[in-house]
Amino acid sequence: MDRTNLERFEREIMPHLDGAYALARLLSRSDHDAEDIVQDALLKAMRFVASYQGINARGWLLSIVRNTAYSRLRAAGAKELMMDDDLAAAADPHLAPPLESLIAEEQRQLVRTMLERLPMPMREVLLLREVEDLSYKAIAEIIQAPIGTVMSRLGRARERLSALLCQAAKETTP
């Protein structure tokens, strides 16, 4: 890598390290794996930064992180890569207790645990939308799926997570 590309990497790619870590952490469900994944992704990004011509550096880095995470998990033989639509069966929202009660600090661990029970494709759209605040179009480019798929998967992911949290709340509330 020459100096120009290195400077470009530092200026455009490195600021998105936090987002890259959040995505890798969510996909791998492990701090250590997330660090490995992001490091691999950074190395790839360094190698290919010269060929990166886009304007959305964050989306570009997140795509690399995602691909790195998927190929690692595929190599590890993870079964959850399959998108199981049955898993996404929605709970009846009208029966749910108010979510506000779950926002307390001590409940965050529970949210994380439930989030990690979602299939990977659901976890990633949730993160890209809710945390990274990306548009459907940007998410579609990253996960290489149509915008309609992003929308429906995001809806199912929210419903599923919401249902899991309601269930957990019911179990912990006598």
């Binding site: 390290l17 959040a22 952490r25 926002i103 949730l126 809710e130």
Partner: peptide, 24 residues
């Protein structure tokens, strides 16, 4: 409900890369 869910998710996610990753 869903707006609260979004806020919870944002609060749950690591806001920053871990110190180990930053070092790497």
């Amino acid at each position: 409900r869903y707006r609260a869910l979004g806020a919870t998710l944002r609060a749950t996610m690591p806001a920053r890369a871990s110190a180990a990753l930053q070092q790497r």
